[in-house]
Design a protein around this nucleic acid. Structure first.
Lengths: 258, 258
DNA sequence: GGGGATTTGTCCGTATGTATT
DNA sequence: TAATACATACGGACAAATCCC
């Protein structure tokens, strides 16, 4: 594999000429996205890659920084170090969405509202499916299993988030599921940052009400009542949003870590 | 500004120690996202930044590559060259979403379906708003203006995409608008790549039907009929999706450029 | 537990290409 | 056209971290 050392086209007018590091990064990225490089795979050592690709170390390192910022590789030092491959993650996509939203000064309330708009129809789709009884069973099993699995109260929100994710996932649209996961990732990042600064409120009463709402959705899905399932889930999501916004009062705008 | 030359904490156990280039990139990125650096602003020259931040040229260049891959800066050579600042763009977020979808082998039909799920409720929200008459006027004005502005048939799809964007935008949720823009960006990338390979079909008849559907939505919004507006828009979007999928038959899976 | 080997992290100096004046 | 200023790329060197024996 050879990359053009001193860009082939010479003077290129107004055309943007990609730098060597970008080309190298794209080359490796494509192998990851196409599945030719799998999770955990080790890339060759720097010296080997330099020879294979015909580039210098600084150039290779620039490519590594690009891929590292996309969480597609992680580099460690030491004797068995080197670059290791990772699958593209929703967190990164959520991160970039957060950059945009933060730049525009979008409030967290807006993000919560988006979840409601997105998830409520998903609940309706679930109930209107022909195999809604099977789907209801899947949902119910998740609830009972997570009930026995959760030991401390602190990990209950995580289980609840998993239920919301499952609702969207069973609706059967992968793009929608991705968006939903991105939103969940934003909430998680925002809340964890907030919890670090303030005191976490367990809100035992709210947890019980949430649990009842989850079981009620299962029933509506089982009954195949799409209209009521969507309406019920919308109410639940709205209430949840209000609660979250009130409890994190003061942190109204998206906060970006990176 | 001084970054820890040889990471302060020394041995850090299992904690991931961020590299200097990442810190520098984050530092500059935050200034951009917080609006302290504005679109078109020029960053100091490399030598100046090296002195200001107390880092070497390779490290600074690694940071530049990271920011460049996020489209937050663009670097040019020559006398008045250097790094120029850009606002965070939806295309980048769409790009990473595309990486994830492509990795999972998601079909374009899935992405189109997501647009339907997302935009249809937005149309309903539009009609149910108290100022729906004003919103209808905005939509109508866009249609008449784009009608006079479009000269060639090739730029008509662009105008249509703008109308769809406007529908979501007027629904008033910025997060939803971002998602919608990301989807539109994916369609644009996919179609432009497809058009380059095949022959573009103008489909005059479809264009007229689409135009009628747009005007009908305006009427339903003006009348404040939320239920029918949502149903109508869903039908229109579904038909549009079928049409696009059929006309790009063979390119069923998301394709990623980068 | 300590020493050595391997691999990346950071730096410096230099040469070359490129765009502006 | 020539000079100038800037980024691009290369090679070599040392420091730091990690693992194995």
């Amino acid at each position: 594999m050879v990359f053009p050392a001193h860009n082939v086209l010479g003077t290129t007018g107004t055309v943007r000429v990609p730098k060597t590091a970008e080309l190298v990064a794209s080359h490796i990225r494509q192998q990851i996205i196409r599945g030719q490089l799998k999770e955990g795979d080790a890339l060759p050592a720097e010296t080997v890659l330099m020879a294979q690709l015909g580039i210098s170390r600084p150039t290779l390192r620039e490519a590594f920084r690009i891929l590292e910022s996309e969480a597609l590789i992680s580099v460690r030092r030491g004797v068995h170090g080197g670059a290791r491959v990772h699958v593209p993650s929703e967190e990164v996509a959520a991160r970039y969405a957060a950059f945009i939203l933060r730049y525009r000064g979008v409030a967290m309330a807006d993000v919560y509202a988006a979840r409601t708009i997105l998830e409520a129809p998903a609940a309706g789709m679930l109930a209107s499916r022909s195999n809604s009884v099977t789907l209801a069973k899947r949902l119910e099993r998740y609830l009972t299993e997570s009930e026995t699995a959760t030991e401390t109260a602190s990990e209950r929100p995580w289980a609840a988030a998993g239920f919301h994710q499952l609702v969207v996932e069973l609706a059967g649209n992968q793009t929608l599921t991705l968006f939903s996961t991105m939103l969940e990732s934003l909430f998680e990042a925002h809340n964890s940052k907030y919890i670090r600064e303030h005191d976490p409120q367990p809100t035992e009463q709210h947890a019980r009400r949430g649990e009842r709402a989850h079981y009620k959705l299962v029933e509506l899905v089982r009954a195949g009542d799409a209209v009521e399932a969507e309406a019920h889930w919308r109410r639940h999501l709205s209430e949840l949003s209000r609660e979250m916004i009130r409890s994190t009062e003061g942190a109204t705008v998206i906060d970006v870590l990176g």
